[in-house]
Each structure stands twice: as C-alpha cells, then as structure tokens.
Design a protein around this nucleic acid. Structure first.
Length: 565
RNA sequence: UGCCCGAUAGUGUAAUGGUAGCACGAGUGACUCUGAAUCACUUAGUCUAGGUUCAAAUCCUAGUCGGGCAACCA
C-alpha cells in the first residue's frame, strides 16, 4: 500500500478528488474500499489528455491501497474495433500502469443490462417509443420550452415487454423503435426528458458478433457497469456533470449498489488539439503520417517523439486536478521532459548542418582519441572516446563571419574550445562563387589537449564538432509544436483551422554528421546531442540509414536573445 | 429563455474563516569545457457589488464573464 503523503510535496495538500476519497474512507462510506476505473471507448487512440485521467484513476487506486479496472466502454458497434483495444492496453502499459484483473468490457454486461431494462419496464419506468428520430428530437423541446410526451408513452407493461423482446429478436429495422426511460418530459434538465436507453442497430459488434441488434446507450450502461464492478469512485470529465443526475437515477430505480461519480476538468494544452475529430482528420488528410506521428499528442506519437513515461506522469502530477476548465502551457510538459531527459540521457556530439573545418597545423592522417563524459548528471554512465582529426565538421550556426556583439562562438581570428578537444582559432574563410561560406581554415593549439590552456587563457565558448572521416551520416527530423496558434479553442472552433498548423512542425535534415559512437544506435534509444537538444532513434531507422527525431530542444539563451530583436 | 458547473500572478495550482504560497514562463545576475544543467534575485494575483464575522480567496445574496447540456455518440 502506498502512502499518499509521500507524493504531496511540501504543501501537504491533495486535490479535491483525493480529498473526497479520504473523506469517504474516514466515514466508511465504501468500507474503506477504493475501486476506480479507466473507461475508454475503443474507437481511437489515447492521447495526453487520457494520460491525465489514467494517472488520476490508477494513481488514486495505488495511493489508497485500492485497485483500478480497465474497462472498454463499447456500446456502439459502429465505431469500435479490437485494434483500438490492443492499442489502448499497450499505451497504458507503456505509461507504467497495470489494471486489476482482466480487461473488462461493458459489452460483457449486455445480458444483465437487458434484464435491468425489463425490470424498469415492469415497474413502469421504461417504455418502447415508436416515434421517428425526428419526432423524438422535436418533441424533446428546448431549454426554453418543455418537451411533448410521446403518444406511445402510456403503453401497457405487457405491450412494452412484448415489443422490447421483439426488438431484441431482430423483428424490427434500425430506428423503428427505441426504449426510453419514463421520467419527465417537462424536466428543466434536458437529460431527464425520457432519455433513450436502447436503440436498434443491426450491426456487427467486434466482440459480441451478431448476438445483439439492440444496443444500450452510454447512460444506461456506464453507471451500472461501475455498479457491477463495485467501483467506489467513478471519476470522469466535466462534460458528464449533467449526466450524473441520470447516472444516479438508473442506479436508484434499479436498487443496486451505488458508486459515486466525480467530475474533473479534462486537459487542454497550448499549441495542440485533443479532439478526436481533428486528430482523425489530420491523419486522414495526410497532414501527419499517422496516429504515431511524433507531432501528434497521442501517447504513441509522444512515445515515438522520444517522451518518457516518467516525464508524462510527472507532468500529470504537476498540473493538478480541479474543476476549472483551463489551458495548460505546453512549456510545462516540455520542462518535465527536459528534467527527466537531462538526468537520464547520455550525451553525444552531432552536427546537424555541417560546415567543414580544416585544422591546418594538424598532421594529415593522424587521429587523436579524446575522452568524453557520457552523462555529467550520472557518473556511472562513464566515458567514451571521440576521434579528432585534421578535417572536422562544426555547426553552421556556430560560425559567423561578421559576428554581432553577444555572439561568442567561432569567427575570423577568434579562438574557441572544441568540446573535449583543443582550442581552435579560425584563420581563413573560404567561400563559393555565390559568396557562401563553405570551409574554415583553422589552427589548433596542441597544448590545450583536453580543453584547458596551461597558460591559463580563457575562451568565450565551447562548440561541438565531429571528425569528418569518422562521421556517421544520418537523417534528423526536427519537430516543433503542431500548431503555431497557442489557444486550442481557436483551432477547435475555426472552420479554417488548418491555417493554424505550424508549417515548421517538421523539418527534415538529410546530411547530418554524428560522432562515431552513434553508429550502433537502435530504435528508441535517447541521447542528448550536446548544445542542441534531446534526440531519439526513430522506428524508420536502419543500420545503413540512421534516422533520429528531435524530442525537444535544449533551453537556448542565444536563440532567445535573437528572438528579442 | 431553462438547468448544471466554474472564476486566485501571463499559465497551471495551494491556502478549506486567521501571514495569499508553490511551479512553469518571463527578466536579471552568479557559475560553467553544453549560451545546457545548477544557484540567487526580480516580476506579477483573490471577477464585481453588497452582506455575515473581531477576521472572508474561503460562508451568504446578486451580478459579470467563461464552460457544458437539446446524437438512436461516449
């Protein structure tokens, strides 16, 4: 059993959902049981917003000595698929959580649900309505006017039973009848105006096959499923607040065990969207390469991008849980990512946009092996050797022919340190016909081997480099925010939302030069490319053609300075 | 027009009738063989108006603003 106080930080405070759990444990409302559940509909892939819910539900169970179920909310046969069931399990497992017992399915409760529906018919609380969809919709009324009762509302119990049985038996076509709860067509709560419990759908269910042509609605399924599983705290997002009234009504009418529904605000993140519809459209229209595109906020997208489960969980714990529907800055997610990656990633040198450097006073054919630290944050990561030779590559951005004031890197006549190697001075600049700098002629000081000068002289900066002869070529994909527009609600509302897509969300660099040791990097491995950012090996990578994804850049004072101008 | 929910620095949150804190961001500086990391400092807040109280971010009333509800979706 976990101790909740371990995770509460210095404030010692917990969110309102945990407070409720603690209060219930104190009063013994659920006999000290804590059972939560994560109930996705298997009709899409999980995203970072789901991660918040997963961390909440699994986290609470863990912290209070309870259990968390994984239940597929699969009551709409036209949308759900076994592939999603698979993917959902993979993603939750990758995030680091284990559900209690087997995966559960709302569709496994169909028979019980049917019996309960019959029970409600018998008690006069449900009836078969034979109005058309349009009539039902029209007669529901609006917020301003009450609804109109269906002419079929007062059918006898016998007739309802007979009709409902025939509905199940497949004697009617889609849409001919529905089963409705008999509540109050004049209720100020729209959801209580005789909500639909069952609809006819002659459709193949990915699990139940063709056993059913009658499918229960979410509201007639969710609460009872929670009840069957003995869930204590049914935690869901804000948009179900209105549904709680119905949730409780069904449970009460049925006289079954009552879980307690609590709603919290779903996660919104700047510079991205969480809506299934938008995400699907981006995949379908080829704006991204798939659900696992590293630009996507999906769990698989983030995973491929190089995010760690630890970073995502830390993020979820830091954003807190409230009922306020706000927007969290993606900078916080990135902060959590960097924090984790800084601690765990080995450092390497990689030159993304190579500029050739020739060390004129370094003997041709000679190679110096220099020792480099793998991870300054973790001594146990050890060291490695990097080869230094006469011809090297440095980052184009690390040289300026006519440097502005605060530019500390290489420039004509200037001396800088080559990381883990020597002090190097730029003597000459070679350009092509168009005037572009294509090569630097430099000299090195052999006395500075290892990076410091015996005479104590200092340099303003240290830059990374790669030995040309030993360089491993690679493709590097630079990722950035999916949308240039920070506010996701603008993207969600705007019909022309595609204009907000960030055209620079992906930039592919083909001829990058990596240090020798990166030659054996394999799928999923993460590194910090010094001074650039965190990168991971993409699944497209092969030993012949390495492919790296930029997970996130390092914080960059220089870039910030330039932006200010 | 009805019903439900919400509102604390730029952003996310804490304070549960008794000193408005924290984190991210932003800014400044120190340090540095990563313009990283680290460290220090600065920045900036209780939606409005009444009421209850010795005392209100917190309780009450009204208003304002924001979100949600009228799929045979979940």
């Amino acid at each position: 059993m976990g101790n909740p106080t371990d995770d509460q930080g210095e404030s010692g405070s917990v969110d309102f959902v945990r407070q409720k759990v603690e209060a219930d444990n104190e009063t013994g409302k659920f006999d000290q049981r804590v059972v939560t559940r994560f109930p996705p509909e298997p009709n899409g892939f999980l995203h970072i917003g789901h991660a918040k819910s997963i961390c909440l539900n699994f986290g609470i169970a863990e912290e209070y000595g309870g259990v968390c179920h994984l239940r597929m909310d699969d009551t709409d046969p036209t949308k759900e698929d076994v592939d999603f069931v698979e993917a959902i399990q993979q993603d939750i497992t990758w995030l680091g959580f284990r559900w209690h017992g087997d995966v559960r399915y709302a569709s496994d409760y169909f028979e019980q649900l049917y019996e309960w529906a019959v029970q409600l018919i018998n008690s006069g609380k449900a009836y078969v309505d034979s109005q058309s969809i349009e009539e039902i919709r029209r007669n529901r009324g609006t917020s301003a006017e009450v609804g109109v009762e269906s002419p079929f509302r007062d059918r006898s119990v016998e007739e309802n039973l007979d009709l409902f049985q025939k509905m199940r038996a497949g004697e009617f076509g889609d849409g001919e009848h529905v089963l409705r709860a008999r509540i109050d067509m004049a209720s100020p709560h729209l959801i209580m105006r005789d909500p639909i419990m069952y609809r006819i759908r002659h459709a193949h269910h990915y699990r139940q096959g063709d056993d059913w042509c009658l499918y229960p609605m979410y509201d007639f399924t969710h609460g009872q499923s929670d009840s069957i599983e003995g869930v204590t705290h049914s935690i869901c997002t804000l948009e179900f607040e209105n549904n709680r009234r119905l949730y409780d009504w069904y449970i009460e009418q049925l006289g079954i065990y009552a879980p307690e529904q609590t709603e919290f605000a779903r996660l919104n993140l700047t510079h991205t969207v969480m809506s299934k519809r938008r995400l699907l459209q981006m995949v379908n229209d080829g704006m991204v390469v798939g659900w696992d595109d590293p630009r996507m906020p999906t769990i698989r997208g983030l995973r491929r991008r190089g995010y760690t489960p630890e970073a995502i969980r830390e993020f979820c714990s830091r954003i807190g849980v409230t009922k306020f529907d706000g927007v969290t800055e993606i900078a916080l997610l990135e902060h959590c990512l960097r924090e984790d990656l800084n601690r765990t990633s080995e450092r390497r040198m990689a030159v993304l946009r190579p500029l050739k450097v020739v060390i004129e006073n370094f003997p041709e054919g000679q190679v110096e092996e220099l020792e480099a630290i793998n991870n300054p944050e973790d001594e146990s990561a050890g060291t490695r050797n990097v080869p230094f030779s006469r011809e090297l590559y440095i980052e184009r951005d690390d040289f300026m022919e006519d440097p502005p004031k605060k530019f500390f890197r290489l420039a004509p006549g200037r001396e800088v340190r080559f990381r883990y190697a020597f002090f190097v001075t730029c003597n000459d600049v070679i350009k092509d016909e168009s005037g572009e700098v294509i090569e630097l002629r430099c000299s090195y000081d052999p006395e500075t081997r290892g990076g410091s000068a015996p005479d104590g002289r200092k340099v303003k900066s240290t830059i990374h480099w790669v030995s040309a002869a030993h360089a491993v070529r690679a493709e590097v994909r630079l990722y950035d925010h999916l949308f240039s527009e920070p506010d996701p609600s603008v993207i969600a509302r705007d019909d022309d939302w595609v204009q907000h897509l960030n055209p620079n969300a992906l930039e592919t660099l083909e001829e990058c030069c990596l240090e020798r040791s990166l030659g054996e990097a394999t799928d999923g491995q993460r590194f910090q490319f010094e001074r650039l950012g965190y990168f991971c090996v993409d699944q497209d990578s092969h030993p012949e053609t390495l492919v790296f994804n930029r997970t996130v850049t390092l914080r960059d004072q220089w870039a910030k300075l330039q932006k200010q101008k």
